[in-house]
């Protein structure tokens, strides 16, 4: 389905954020990316929808390698919940969700915010599914609580019937109850539509609870890949204990890369 083939990404300053990663994510899987801050989770994820391009290796989608020329077409099949949400603050909740449909709608209709009844009902369905109410529809996105904004972002990501949904720390700033309910919404929305989810999390417990599969990254490399059952305590600790040797190795590498 979604295939990473020895993908690497090096930033201009020499940082190797993702280092030779190979992964296959089948259709309908809820895959959680774990790893300490700076491990390369966001970078890996952003290579799926073209925000970041791999410096070597390739990402393929339905057997087709993603290139610059067919990027648009892939982007339309990918929904994303960004780490900072990136909702449009002064736009209503309804139109924030509908903005996920823009790629498929004509310019002039879009310009005058003319969305068909079916489109709007689709948005209503999603908003209802993630637990928002009719009174929220016309509110500005900036006038919602953090958890509600999170839900709007989920609804926007799903509105275009994507085959893959990327969620970058969707529960980063929420309390535990809210986090569970947001993750539940995300998982059930994906299950209904048979969409794969790639989701980064910082909380191990949620990963164990929700994931079909866990991929742990450390310093840009895959450190663990398997079902939550196989993730024993020792490995769990190891994920977050980036050793000083590794850190030095990375810094040293960065220096070398720059010199070359």
């Amino acid at each position: 389905m979604l295939v990473f083939d020895s993908v690497s990404r090096q930033y201009k300053d020499g940082t190797i954020a993702v280092n030779n990663v190979s992964l296959q994510i089948p259709q309908g899987e809820f895959c959680v990316l774990l790893g300490p801050s700076g491990a390369g989770k966001s970078t890996l994820m952003n290579m799926i929808n073209g925000v970041v391009a791999p410096t070597s290796g390739s990402v393929a989608f339905c057997g087709e390698i993603i290139t610059k020329s067919n990027m648009r077409q892939f982007q339309r099949q990918v929904g994303m919940i960004h780490q900072q949400l990136h909702l449009i603050p002064r736009l209503s909740v309804l139109h924030n969700v509908l903005s996920g449909l823009l790629p498929e709608r004509g310019f002039w209709r879009s310009f005058f915010k003319f969305f068909s009844k079916e489109d709007q009902i689709k948005a209503f369905t999603l908003l209802h599914e993630v637990g928002l109410e009719a009174k929220h529809l016309q509110r500005r996105a900036s006038d919602l609580s953090g958890g509600q904004q999170q839900r709007v972002a989920i609804a926007r990501a799903f509105v275009s019937d994507p085959k893959v949904v990327l969620a970058d720390e969707p529960v980063a700033s929420l309390d535990p109850t809210m986090s569970r309910s947001v993750l539940n919404s995300l998982k059930s929305a994906a299950k209904h539509r048979d969409a794969s989810v790639v989701c980064t999390l910082h909380q191990l417990e949620y990963a164990l609870e929700f994931a079909d599969r866990i991929v742990a990254l450390r310093a840009g490399r895959v450190f663990f890949d398997g079902s939550p059952k196989d993730l024993d305590l020792q490995t769990q600790h190891a994920i977050y204990s980036l050793t000083q040797i590794e850190e030095k190795e990375r810094v040293g590498k960065r220096g070398n890369e720059v010199a070359v």
């Binding site: 929808n49 982007q75 990918v78 449009i88 903005s99 823009l102 790629p103 310019f107």
Partner: peptide, 17 residues
């Protein structure tokens, strides 16, 4: 960026974001 990375054309991004 959010709209653009979903495949939205520039003019629509301009209009909405």
């Amino acid at each position: 960026l959010a709209l653009k990375s979903a495949g939205t054309s520039s003019l629509k991004v301009l209009r909405y974001a």
